[in-house]
């Protein structure tokens, strides 16, 4: 079995299985946990939990006033690579074909040139995010191995995908196999590392909104 056959077959299959298992397990166990009752008295005029949750999430989409340029840059940079990743993942025809194989649905893709530009921008943006993480004293303090590993696991598919598309460094079948293997690694790491934020970000931000909203604080 060639490396490519291994990547397209068992590797991606096992990775998807681990991903599904892990995500299901974490989401269900998290949502099913008994909640501690908030015993505070709801402040008069406080919004309902639902609207506090939604607005908490929305308010977190932008930097609050009073924060400096660096924070704003970090946030914008975050948007750039998240958007870039989405464009690459959902817009590249080869990826759509992969998704069609899994879910049976497909949609028109973007021109390859657009994807290539998006990939280069995304890569630059990811590097910028890492630089900030490593240079900002606060970020360094709160960063753990989990953060750095998650960064690597996210960046590798972009890098190897770009190499595969431009046929750089090795034969195409090898590049493609490596690319698929990096995606498999991402899928396996996803439920157990910081990547899980893709699901949890909605919960954590809403929960913060609810918690403070009840106390009449907008955060």
């Amino acid at each position: 079995m060639s490396l490519l056959d291994f990547a397209r077959g068992p590797a991606i299959e096992v990775a998807l299985a681990v991903f599904t298992l892990g995500v299901m397990w974490r989401l269900i166990s998290l949502l099913g946990l008994p909640w501690a009752k908030d015993r505070t008295v709801r402040r008069a005029g406080a919004p309902s939990d639902f609207s506090a949750g939604v607005s908490g999430f929305i308010r977190h989409l932008w930097v609050p006033k009073g924060f400096g340029m660096t924070s704003r840059f970090a946030l914008i940079n975050g948007y750039v690579f998240h958007l870039g990743l989405a464009i690459i993942f959902f817009g590249f025809v080869q990826h759509i074909l992969f998704l069609r194989g899994l879910f049976g649905v497909s949609w028109p893709g973007l021109p390859t040139s657009v994807i290539s530009i998006a990939a280069v921008v995304t890569l630059g943006s990811l590097v910028a995010a890492l630089v900030r993480r490593m240079t900002s004293p606060v970020m360094r303090l709160i960063s753990t191995a989990n953060d750095y590993f998650t960064w690597l696991i996210t960046t590798l598919p972009v890098l190897t995908g770009l190499l595969a598309v431009s046929h750089l460094g090795a034969r195409y079948e090898t590049l493609l196999a490596i690319h698929i293997l990096t995606v498999a690694a991402l899928l396996i790491w996803f439920p157990f590392g910081k990547l899980m934020h893709a699901f949890l970000v909605f919960l954590t931000r809403a929960e913060t909104g609810v918690f403070y909203g009840r106390r009449g604080v907008k955060i």
Binding site: D5, R8, G9, P10, E13, L16, Q94, H95, G101, L102
Partner: peptide, 16 residues
């Protein structure tokens, strides 16, 4: 297509 995965047994995912 070359980029689509070659599932030995999709039931594995369901099982997972």
């Amino acid at each position: 297509p070359l980029s689509a995965s070659v599932m030995g047994n999709p039931a594995i995912i369901g099982g997972a």
